[in-house]
Design a protein around this nucleic acid. Structure first.
Lengths: 236, 236
DNA sequence: CTTTGTGAAATTATTCACAGCA
DNA sequence: TGCTGTGAATAATTTCACAAAG
Protein backbone atom coordinates (compact mmCIF):
# COMPACT_ATOMS: atom_id res chain seq x y z
CA UNK A 1 0.00 0.00 0.00
CA UNK A 2 2.33 2.71 1.15
CA UNK A 3 5.43 2.21 -0.86
CA UNK A 4 8.63 3.62 0.45
CA UNK A 5 9.47 5.07 -2.89
CA UNK A 6 12.90 6.39 -2.04
CA UNK A 7 12.65 8.88 -4.83
CA UNK A 8 15.58 10.96 -6.01
CA UNK A 9 15.30 13.77 -3.55
CA UNK A 10 13.63 12.03 -0.67
CA UNK A 11 16.61 12.14 1.63
CA UNK A 12 15.21 10.06 4.39
CA UNK A 13 16.70 10.48 7.78
CA UNK A 14 18.36 7.17 7.92
CA UNK A 15 20.05 7.79 11.19
CA UNK A 16 16.75 7.86 12.99
CA UNK A 17 15.22 4.63 14.11
CA UNK A 18 11.90 5.55 12.61
CA UNK A 19 10.92 5.27 9.02
CA UNK A 20 9.37 8.31 7.49
CA UNK A 21 6.32 6.56 6.16
CA UNK A 22 3.64 7.07 8.77
CA UNK A 23 1.34 9.15 6.69
CA UNK A 24 -1.50 6.68 6.66
CA UNK A 25 -4.47 6.29 8.96
CA UNK A 26 -3.80 6.38 12.64
CA UNK A 27 -6.19 3.74 13.87
CA UNK A 28 -4.04 0.67 13.47
CA UNK A 29 -5.95 -1.95 11.58
CA UNK A 30 -6.11 -5.48 12.87
CA UNK A 31 -3.73 -7.86 11.09
CA UNK A 32 -5.37 -10.34 8.79
CA UNK A 33 -3.87 -13.26 10.65
CA UNK A 34 -5.46 -12.00 13.83
CA UNK A 35 -8.90 -11.53 12.31
CA UNK A 36 -8.90 -15.13 11.19
CA UNK A 37 -8.37 -16.16 14.79
CA UNK A 38 -11.02 -13.89 16.27
CA UNK A 39 -13.80 -16.16 15.07
CA UNK A 40 -12.05 -19.09 16.66
CA UNK A 41 -11.68 -17.26 19.95
CA UNK A 42 -15.33 -16.37 19.86
CA UNK A 43 -16.40 -19.93 19.21
CA UNK A 44 -14.26 -21.15 22.08
CA UNK A 45 -15.36 -18.42 24.44
CA UNK A 46 -18.99 -19.27 23.89
CA UNK A 47 -18.14 -22.80 24.91
CA UNK A 48 -16.61 -21.52 28.13
CA UNK A 49 -19.62 -19.34 28.71
CA UNK A 50 -21.96 -22.28 28.25
CA UNK A 51 -20.03 -24.04 30.98
CA UNK A 52 -20.69 -21.15 33.31
CA UNK A 53 -17.13 -19.85 33.42
CA UNK A 54 -16.84 -16.10 33.81
CA UNK A 55 -13.13 -15.58 33.24
CA UNK A 56 -10.52 -17.22 31.08
CA UNK A 57 -6.78 -16.75 30.81
CA UNK A 58 -4.76 -16.38 27.66
CA UNK A 59 -3.02 -19.60 28.50
CA UNK A 60 -6.28 -21.52 28.72
CA UNK A 61 -7.70 -20.01 25.59
CA UNK A 62 -4.47 -20.56 23.72
CA UNK A 63 -4.32 -24.15 24.91
CA UNK A 64 -7.82 -24.67 23.55
CA UNK A 65 -6.74 -23.54 20.12
CA UNK A 66 -3.22 -24.87 20.04
CA UNK A 67 -1.53 -21.49 20.05
CA UNK A 68 0.65 -19.69 22.57
CA UNK A 69 -0.64 -17.48 25.34
CA UNK A 70 1.50 -14.65 24.03
CA UNK A 71 -0.28 -14.89 20.71
CA UNK A 72 -3.65 -14.59 22.37
CA UNK A 73 -2.62 -11.54 24.37
CA UNK A 74 -1.07 -9.93 21.32
CA UNK A 75 -4.25 -10.47 19.34
CA UNK A 76 -6.47 -8.95 22.01
CA UNK A 77 -4.02 -6.13 22.46
CA UNK A 78 -4.90 -4.83 19.01
CA UNK A 79 -8.27 -3.65 20.20
CA UNK A 80 -7.81 -2.48 23.73
CA UNK A 81 -7.11 -3.66 27.22
CA UNK A 82 -9.55 -6.15 28.65
CA UNK A 83 -7.66 -8.43 30.90
CA UNK A 84 -7.08 -8.27 34.59
CA UNK A 85 -3.60 -9.26 35.64
CA UNK A 86 -3.71 -12.32 37.84
CA UNK A 87 -7.28 -13.09 36.77
CA UNK A 88 -7.63 -13.22 33.03
CA UNK A 89 -10.32 -11.97 30.68
CA UNK A 90 -14.03 -11.62 31.36
CA UNK A 91 -15.69 -14.15 29.10
CA UNK A 92 -18.86 -12.14 28.70
CA UNK A 93 -17.37 -8.81 27.78
CA UNK A 94 -14.78 -10.40 25.55
CA UNK A 95 -17.54 -12.11 23.59
CA UNK A 96 -19.37 -8.82 23.18
CA UNK A 97 -16.21 -7.08 22.06
CA UNK A 98 -15.35 -9.77 19.54
CA UNK A 99 -18.83 -9.69 18.08
CA UNK A 100 -18.56 -5.97 17.72
CA UNK A 101 -15.19 -6.20 15.99
CA UNK A 102 -16.37 -8.90 13.62
CA UNK A 103 -19.53 -6.89 12.91
CA UNK A 104 -21.77 -9.71 13.98
CA UNK A 105 -23.40 -7.69 16.72
CA UNK A 106 -26.13 -7.18 14.16
CA UNK A 107 -28.26 -9.30 11.82
CA UNK A 108 -27.40 -10.06 8.20
CA UNK A 109 -29.81 -11.31 5.54
CA UNK A 110 -28.57 -13.87 3.08
CA UNK A 111 -29.91 -15.95 0.22
CA UNK A 112 -28.91 -19.30 -1.22
CA UNK A 113 -28.30 -19.40 -4.96
CA UNK A 114 -28.65 -22.90 -6.32
CA UNK A 115 -30.68 -25.44 -4.37
CA UNK A 116 -28.74 -28.60 -5.05
CA UNK A 117 -27.29 -30.91 -2.45
CA UNK A 118 -25.15 -28.32 -0.79
CA UNK A 119 -27.64 -25.49 -1.04
CA UNK A 120 -30.27 -27.66 0.54
CA UNK A 121 -27.95 -28.67 3.36
CA UNK A 122 -27.15 -25.03 4.09
CA UNK A 123 -30.82 -24.09 4.10
CA UNK A 124 -31.23 -26.60 6.89
CA UNK A 125 -28.14 -25.50 8.76
CA UNK A 126 -29.56 -24.07 11.99
CA UNK A 127 -26.32 -22.48 13.11
CA UNK A 128 -26.53 -19.61 10.65
CA UNK A 129 -29.71 -18.31 12.17
CA UNK A 130 -28.44 -18.53 15.72
CA UNK A 131 -25.38 -16.56 14.64
CA UNK A 132 -27.44 -13.75 13.18
CA UNK A 133 -27.16 -14.82 9.56
CA UNK A 134 -30.68 -15.23 8.28
CA UNK A 135 -31.27 -17.08 5.05
CA UNK A 136 -34.46 -15.43 3.87
CA UNK A 137 -34.70 -16.74 0.33
CA UNK A 138 -33.41 -19.33 -2.11
CA UNK A 139 -33.14 -19.15 -5.86
CA UNK A 140 -32.96 -21.79 -8.53
CA UNK A 141 -33.68 -22.34 -12.21
CA UNK A 142 -35.45 -25.67 -11.75
CA UNK A 143 -39.17 -25.14 -12.29
CA UNK A 144 -40.01 -28.29 -10.38
CA UNK A 145 -38.80 -26.83 -7.09
CA UNK A 146 -39.60 -23.15 -7.61
CA UNK A 147 -42.47 -22.21 -5.36
CA UNK A 148 -41.75 -24.94 -2.84
CA UNK A 149 -40.27 -24.25 0.56
CA UNK A 150 -37.42 -25.64 2.60
CA UNK A 151 -38.00 -24.93 6.23
CA UNK A 152 -39.34 -21.41 6.34
CA UNK A 153 -37.58 -20.42 3.18
CA UNK A 154 -39.28 -20.21 -0.18
CA UNK A 155 -37.51 -21.06 -3.42
CA UNK A 156 -37.91 -18.36 -6.02
CA UNK A 157 -37.12 -18.33 -9.69
CA UNK A 158 -33.61 -17.20 -10.43
CA UNK A 159 -35.07 -15.03 -13.14
CA UNK A 160 -36.34 -12.39 -10.79
CA UNK A 161 -34.02 -12.57 -7.84
CA UNK A 162 -32.88 -9.00 -8.34
CA UNK A 163 -36.24 -7.79 -7.15
CA UNK A 164 -36.22 -10.01 -4.08
CA UNK A 165 -32.70 -9.02 -3.11
CA UNK A 166 -33.61 -5.41 -2.70
CA UNK A 167 -37.09 -6.04 -1.34
CA UNK A 168 -35.82 -8.37 1.36
CA UNK A 169 -32.65 -6.48 2.18
CA UNK A 170 -30.40 -9.37 1.23
CA UNK A 171 -26.72 -8.52 1.59
CA UNK A 172 -24.98 -11.87 1.31
CA UNK A 173 -25.30 -14.51 -1.37
CA UNK A 174 -24.39 -18.13 -0.80
CA UNK A 175 -23.30 -19.53 -4.12
CA UNK A 176 -24.06 -23.22 -4.55
CA UNK A 177 -24.76 -23.52 -8.27
CA UNK A 178 -22.96 -25.98 -10.54
CA UNK A 179 -19.37 -25.08 -11.27
CA UNK A 180 -20.00 -24.06 -14.87
CA UNK A 181 -22.66 -21.53 -13.88
CA UNK A 182 -20.61 -20.02 -11.05
CA UNK A 183 -19.25 -16.94 -12.79
CA UNK A 184 -22.48 -16.14 -14.58
CA UNK A 185 -24.54 -16.28 -11.42
CA UNK A 186 -21.87 -14.37 -9.52
CA UNK A 187 -22.12 -11.60 -12.10
CA UNK A 188 -25.85 -11.44 -11.53
CA UNK A 189 -25.37 -11.36 -7.80
CA UNK A 190 -23.03 -8.43 -8.11
CA UNK A 191 -25.43 -6.66 -10.43
CA UNK A 192 -28.20 -7.15 -7.91
CA UNK A 193 -26.19 -5.25 -5.35
CA UNK A 194 -25.07 -8.00 -2.99
CA UNK A 195 -22.17 -7.02 -0.76
CA UNK A 196 -20.62 -10.40 -0.08
CA UNK A 197 -20.54 -13.86 -1.60
CA UNK A 198 -19.86 -17.10 0.20
CA UNK A 199 -18.65 -19.27 -2.64
CA UNK A 200 -19.10 -23.02 -2.38
CA UNK A 201 -18.18 -23.74 -5.98
CA UNK A 202 -14.69 -24.98 -6.81
CA UNK A 203 -14.19 -22.01 -9.07
CA UNK A 204 -12.52 -18.73 -8.38
CA UNK A 205 -15.05 -16.06 -9.21
CA UNK A 206 -14.35 -12.59 -10.46
CA UNK A 207 -16.22 -9.76 -8.81
CA UNK A 208 -15.61 -6.05 -8.68
CA UNK A 209 -13.96 -4.16 -5.87
CA UNK A 210 -17.28 -3.51 -4.17
CA UNK A 211 -17.99 -7.12 -3.37
CA UNK A 212 -16.14 -9.47 -1.05
CA UNK A 213 -15.80 -13.19 -1.54
CA UNK A 214 -14.97 -15.96 0.87
CA UNK A 215 -14.62 -19.39 -0.63
CA UNK A 216 -15.15 -22.84 0.82
CA UNK A 217 -13.78 -25.64 -1.32
CA UNK A 218 -14.28 -29.13 0.08
CA UNK A 219 -11.79 -30.77 -2.22
CA UNK A 220 -9.16 -28.24 -1.29
CA UNK A 221 -9.69 -29.05 2.35
CA UNK A 222 -9.27 -32.74 1.67
CA UNK A 223 -6.09 -32.06 -0.28
CA UNK A 224 -4.63 -30.18 2.64
CA UNK A 225 -5.55 -33.08 4.87
CA UNK A 226 -3.90 -35.58 2.54
CA UNK A 227 -0.72 -33.54 2.59
CA UNK A 228 -0.69 -33.26 6.35
CA UNK A 229 -1.31 -36.95 6.84
CA UNK A 230 1.37 -37.90 4.36
CA UNK A 231 3.85 -35.53 5.98
CA UNK A 232 3.13 -36.86 9.46
CA UNK A 233 3.91 -40.30 8.09
CA UNK A 234 7.34 -39.17 7.04
CA UNK A 235 8.21 -37.05 10.03
CA UNK A 236 6.96 -39.22 12.83
CA UNK B 1 -0.03 -33.68 14.32
CA UNK B 2 -0.92 -30.46 12.66
CA UNK B 3 -4.25 -29.10 13.71
CA UNK B 4 -6.76 -27.01 11.86
CA UNK B 5 -4.24 -25.22 9.72
CA UNK B 6 -3.94 -22.72 12.48
CA UNK B 7 -1.08 -21.52 14.50
CA UNK B 8 2.47 -22.70 14.31
CA UNK B 9 3.60 -26.19 15.08
CA UNK B 10 0.80 -26.71 17.50
CA UNK B 11 2.68 -29.15 19.62
CA UNK B 12 3.50 -28.91 23.24
CA UNK B 13 5.29 -25.83 24.31
CA UNK B 14 8.84 -26.88 23.76
CA UNK B 15 10.67 -24.24 25.67
CA UNK B 16 14.25 -23.90 24.77
CA UNK B 17 15.84 -21.41 27.08
CA UNK B 18 18.42 -20.65 24.47
CA UNK B 19 18.67 -21.32 20.80
CA UNK B 20 22.40 -21.53 20.81
CA UNK B 21 22.80 -23.77 17.83
CA UNK B 22 20.60 -23.59 14.82
CA UNK B 23 20.41 -27.09 13.41
CA UNK B 24 18.89 -26.85 10.02
CA UNK B 25 17.02 -29.82 8.68
CA UNK B 26 18.49 -31.37 5.57
CA UNK B 27 15.61 -31.22 3.14
CA UNK B 28 14.06 -27.82 3.36
CA UNK B 29 10.39 -28.27 4.02
CA UNK B 30 7.80 -26.33 2.09
CA UNK B 31 6.41 -23.37 4.04
CA UNK B 32 2.86 -23.79 5.26
CA UNK B 33 1.75 -20.68 3.45
CA UNK B 34 3.03 -22.16 0.22
CA UNK B 35 1.31 -25.50 0.73
CA UNK B 36 -2.00 -23.76 1.12
CA UNK B 37 -1.47 -22.17 -2.26
CA UNK B 38 -0.41 -25.35 -4.02
CA UNK B 39 -3.98 -26.62 -4.10
CA UNK B 40 -5.08 -23.34 -5.60
CA UNK B 41 -2.39 -23.48 -8.26
CA UNK B 42 -3.45 -27.01 -9.10
CA UNK B 43 -7.09 -26.07 -9.44
CA UNK B 44 -6.20 -23.19 -11.71
CA UNK B 45 -3.75 -25.19 -13.78
CA UNK B 46 -6.38 -27.82 -14.49
CA UNK B 47 -8.55 -25.06 -15.81
CA UNK B 48 -5.79 -23.95 -18.15
CA UNK B 49 -5.27 -27.54 -19.21
CA UNK B 50 -8.94 -27.96 -19.97
CA UNK B 51 -8.65 -24.98 -22.29
CA UNK B 52 -5.88 -26.71 -24.17
CA UNK B 53 -3.08 -24.47 -22.99
CA UNK B 54 0.27 -26.20 -22.63
CA UNK B 55 2.30 -23.51 -20.91
CA UNK B 56 1.56 -20.80 -18.40
CA UNK B 57 3.67 -18.00 -16.98
CA UNK B 58 4.01 -17.04 -13.35
CA UNK B 59 2.42 -13.73 -14.20
CA UNK B 60 -0.67 -15.34 -15.68
CA UNK B 61 -1.03 -17.84 -12.88
CA UNK B 62 -0.51 -15.17 -10.28
CA UNK B 63 -3.04 -12.92 -11.95
CA UNK B 64 -5.57 -15.75 -11.80
CA UNK B 65 -5.14 -16.01 -8.07
CA UNK B 66 -4.56 -12.38 -7.22
CA UNK B 67 -0.97 -12.80 -6.12
CA UNK B 68 2.31 -11.58 -7.53
CA UNK B 69 4.36 -13.39 -10.12
CA UNK B 70 7.31 -13.37 -7.77
CA UNK B 71 5.24 -15.24 -5.22
CA UNK B 72 4.39 -17.93 -7.72
CA UNK B 73 8.00 -18.41 -8.76
CA UNK B 74 9.16 -18.47 -5.16
CA UNK B 75 6.57 -21.12 -4.32
CA UNK B 76 7.57 -23.35 -7.22
CA UNK B 77 11.20 -22.78 -6.41
CA UNK B 78 10.80 -24.77 -3.22
CA UNK B 79 10.53 -28.00 -5.11
CA UNK B 80 12.77 -27.66 -8.10
CA UNK B 81 13.17 -25.91 -11.40
CA UNK B 82 10.40 -26.37 -13.90
CA UNK B 83 10.11 -23.24 -15.86
CA UNK B 84 11.63 -22.29 -19.15
CA UNK B 85 12.83 -18.72 -19.33
CA UNK B 86 10.96 -16.84 -21.98
CA UNK B 87 8.25 -19.51 -22.11
CA UNK B 88 6.85 -20.28 -18.69
CA UNK B 89 5.87 -23.54 -17.05
CA UNK B 90 4.58 -26.66 -18.72
CA UNK B 91 1.01 -27.03 -17.53
CA UNK B 92 1.02 -30.80 -17.74
CA UNK B 93 4.21 -31.51 -15.86
CA UNK B 94 3.47 -28.87 -13.27
CA UNK B 95 0.14 -30.54 -12.53
CA UNK B 96 1.84 -33.89 -12.11
CA UNK B 97 4.46 -32.40 -9.83
CA UNK B 98 1.89 -30.62 -7.66
CA UNK B 99 -0.15 -33.78 -7.31
CA UNK B 100 2.94 -35.62 -6.25
CA UNK B 101 3.84 -32.99 -3.67
CA UNK B 102 0.33 -32.89 -2.27
CA UNK B 103 0.27 -36.69 -2.18
CA UNK B 104 -2.80 -36.86 -4.35
CA UNK B 105 -1.07 -38.84 -7.07
CA UNK B 106 -2.76 -41.79 -5.41
CA UNK B 107 -6.22 -42.78 -4.23
CA UNK B 108 -7.54 -42.26 -0.70
CA UNK B 109 -10.52 -44.02 0.83
CA UNK B 110 -12.79 -42.05 3.08
CA UNK B 111 -16.01 -42.53 5.00
CA UNK B 112 -18.74 -40.15 6.07
CA UNK B 113 -19.67 -40.20 9.74
CA UNK B 114 -23.14 -38.84 10.31
CA UNK B 115 -25.60 -38.85 7.43
CA UNK B 116 -27.50 -35.66 8.11
CA UNK B 117 -27.94 -32.79 5.72
CA UNK B 118 -24.27 -32.13 5.27
CA UNK B 119 -23.20 -35.74 5.23
CA UNK B 120 -25.75 -36.49 2.56
CA UNK B 121 -24.61 -33.54 0.47
CA UNK B 122 -21.02 -34.70 0.65
CA UNK B 123 -21.98 -38.24 -0.31
CA UNK B 124 -23.39 -36.76 -3.48
CA UNK B 125 -20.44 -34.48 -4.11
CA UNK B 126 -18.95 -35.86 -7.33
CA UNK B 127 -15.77 -33.85 -7.12
CA UNK B 128 -14.25 -35.99 -4.37
CA UNK B 129 -14.23 -39.07 -6.54
CA UNK B 130 -12.72 -37.30 -9.51
CA UNK B 131 -9.96 -36.02 -7.26
CA UNK B 132 -9.08 -39.48 -6.03
CA UNK B 133 -10.93 -39.28 -2.73
CA UNK B 134 -13.33 -42.19 -2.67
CA UNK B 135 -16.10 -42.23 -0.14
CA UNK B 136 -16.62 -45.94 0.29
CA UNK B 137 -18.90 -46.04 3.30
CA UNK B 138 -21.17 -43.99 5.52
CA UNK B 139 -22.04 -44.51 9.17
CA UNK B 140 -24.95 -43.39 11.27
CA UNK B 141 -26.87 -44.34 14.38
CA UNK B 142 -30.31 -43.95 12.84
CA UNK B 143 -31.81 -47.39 12.30
CA UNK B 144 -34.23 -46.05 9.73
CA UNK B 145 -31.45 -45.29 7.25
CA UNK B 146 -28.95 -48.01 8.12
CA UNK B 147 -28.85 -50.50 5.30
CA UNK B 148 -29.98 -48.02 2.69
CA UNK B 149 -27.68 -46.58 0.08
CA UNK B 150 -26.84 -43.14 -1.21
CA UNK B 151 -25.41 -43.37 -4.66
CA UNK B 152 -23.11 -46.36 -4.57
CA UNK B 153 -22.43 -45.95 -0.89
CA UNK B 154 -24.08 -48.05 1.77
CA UNK B 155 -24.95 -46.69 5.18
CA UNK B 156 -23.69 -48.93 7.98
CA UNK B 157 -24.40 -48.90 11.66
CA UNK B 158 -22.03 -46.73 13.61
CA UNK B 159 -21.76 -49.58 16.08
CA UNK B 160 -19.46 -51.64 13.93
CA UNK B 161 -17.61 -49.13 11.86
CA UNK B 162 -14.28 -50.17 13.28
CA UNK B 163 -14.51 -53.40 11.37
CA UNK B 164 -15.38 -51.68 8.10
CA UNK B 165 -12.63 -49.14 8.46
CA UNK B 166 -9.93 -51.76 8.42
CA UNK B 167 -11.70 -54.04 5.98
CA UNK B 168 -12.18 -51.30 3.44
CA UNK B 169 -8.88 -49.54 3.96
CA UNK B 170 -10.48 -46.29 5.01
CA UNK B 171 -7.92 -43.65 5.96
CA UNK B 172 -9.97 -40.46 6.17
CA UNK B 173 -13.10 -39.77 8.13
CA UNK B 174 -15.49 -36.96 7.24
CA UNK B 175 -17.14 -35.87 10.46
CA UNK B 176 -20.70 -34.60 10.00
CA UNK B 177 -22.39 -35.65 13.21
CA UNK B 178 -24.28 -33.23 15.47
CA UNK B 179 -22.03 -30.87 17.40
CA UNK B 180 -22.58 -32.57 20.75
CA UNK B 181 -21.48 -35.93 19.44
CA UNK B 182 -18.39 -34.58 17.69
CA UNK B 183 -15.72 -35.39 20.25
CA UNK B 184 -17.13 -38.81 21.08
CA UNK B 185 -17.27 -39.90 17.46
CA UNK B 186 -13.85 -38.40 16.83
CA UNK B 187 -12.47 -40.53 19.64
CA UNK B 188 -13.93 -43.60 18.02
CA UNK B 189 -12.50 -42.60 14.65
CA UNK B 190 -9.06 -42.30 16.17
CA UNK B 191 -9.44 -45.63 17.92
CA UNK B 192 -10.40 -47.23 14.64
CA UNK B 193 -7.09 -46.13 13.18
CA UNK B 194 -8.11 -43.34 10.83
CA UNK B 195 -5.25 -41.08 9.78
CA UNK B 196 -7.10 -37.87 9.05
CA UNK B 197 -10.38 -36.20 9.91
CA UNK B 198 -12.20 -33.60 7.87
CA UNK B 199 -14.27 -31.91 10.53
CA UNK B 200 -17.50 -30.24 9.50
CA UNK B 201 -18.75 -29.72 13.04
CA UNK B 202 -18.37 -26.31 14.66
CA UNK B 203 -16.36 -27.86 17.45
CA UNK B 204 -12.67 -28.13 17.85
CA UNK B 205 -11.91 -31.80 18.30
CA UNK B 206 -9.09 -33.28 20.28
CA UNK B 207 -7.15 -36.07 18.66
CA UNK B 208 -3.77 -37.53 19.38
CA UNK B 209 -0.57 -36.71 17.58
CA UNK B 210 -1.07 -39.51 15.09
CA UNK B 211 -4.15 -38.01 13.50
CA UNK B 212 -4.51 -34.82 11.48
CA UNK B 213 -7.55 -32.62 11.42
CA UNK B 214 -8.72 -30.03 8.94
CA UNK B 215 -11.85 -28.15 9.85
CA UNK B 216 -14.51 -26.53 7.74
CA UNK B 217 -16.83 -24.25 9.68
CA UNK B 218 -19.53 -22.57 7.62
CA UNK B 219 -20.40 -20.00 10.26
CA UNK B 220 -16.77 -19.05 10.62
CA UNK B 221 -16.59 -18.43 6.90
CA UNK B 222 -19.65 -16.20 7.05
CA UNK B 223 -18.16 -14.29 9.96
CA UNK B 224 -15.03 -13.59 7.97
CA UNK B 225 -17.21 -12.41 5.12
CA UNK B 226 -19.18 -10.12 7.40
CA UNK B 227 -15.97 -8.57 8.65
CA UNK B 228 -14.59 -8.03 5.17
CA UNK B 229 -17.80 -6.49 3.92
CA UNK B 230 -18.07 -4.18 6.89
CA UNK B 231 -14.45 -3.13 6.52
CA UNK B 232 -14.86 -2.40 2.82
CA UNK B 233 -17.74 -0.19 3.79
CA UNK B 234 -15.54 1.91 6.03
CA UNK B 235 -12.46 2.07 3.85
CA UNK B 236 -13.94 2.75 0.50
C1' DC C 1 1.59 -17.12 43.41
C1' DT C 2 -0.94 -15.83 38.59
C1' DT C 3 -1.73 -13.14 34.68
C1' DT C 4 -1.76 -9.06 31.51
C1' DG C 5 0.43 -5.94 28.22
C1' DT C 6 4.15 -4.92 25.37
C1' DG C 7 8.98 -3.58 23.76
C1' DA C 8 12.41 -6.25 21.47
C1' DA C 9 13.96 -10.24 19.13
C1' DA C 10 13.21 -13.99 16.21
C1' DT C 11 11.01 -16.14 12.71
C1' DT C 12 8.35 -16.45 8.61
C1' DA C 13 6.48 -14.65 4.40
C1' DT C 14 6.47 -11.56 0.56
C1' DT C 15 8.30 -8.44 -2.73
C1' DC C 16 12.04 -6.22 -5.22
C1' DA C 17 15.29 -6.36 -8.65
C1' DC C 18 18.21 -8.22 -11.74
C1' DA C 19 21.42 -11.76 -13.94
C1' DG C 20 20.84 -15.11 -17.31
C1' DC C 21 18.47 -17.87 -20.65
C1' DA C 22 15.13 -18.66 -24.79
C1' DT D 1 11.38 -9.15 -26.34
C1' DG D 2 9.41 -12.35 -22.21
C1' DC D 3 10.40 -15.19 -18.76
C1' DT D 4 12.60 -17.90 -14.79
C1' DG D 5 15.28 -18.34 -10.57
C1' DT D 6 17.05 -16.30 -6.64
C1' DG D 7 19.91 -13.23 -3.47
C1' DA D 8 18.71 -9.20 -0.85
C1' DA D 9 15.44 -6.22 1.15
C1' DT D 10 11.18 -5.54 3.21
C1' DA D 11 7.09 -6.63 5.61
C1' DA D 12 4.28 -9.38 8.49
C1' DT D 13 3.75 -12.41 12.18
C1' DT D 14 5.04 -14.87 16.20
C1' DT D 15 7.60 -15.58 20.29
C1' DC D 16 10.49 -14.12 24.14
C1' DA D 17 10.84 -12.08 28.38
C1' DC D 18 9.82 -9.13 31.89
C1' DA D 19 7.76 -5.05 34.43
C1' DA D 20 3.56 -4.16 36.59
C1' DA D 21 -0.76 -5.52 38.67
C1' DG D 22 -4.35 -8.60 41.03
Amino acid sequence: MVRDGNGPGSGLGIQLGYTATQVMSERASIPRATVKRLSLYLRELELHQSRGETTVSSRTLGGDLGITDAQVRRDFGYFGQFGQPGIGYSVGSLILRLKSILKIDREWNAAVFGVGNIGRALLNYPRFDSKGFHIVAAFDVDDSIIGTSIGSCEIYSAADFEHHVSAMGIEFGILCVPMLAAQEVADQMVAAGLRGILNFTPRRIDVGDDVDVVSVDFSLALEQLAYQVAMSNEDG
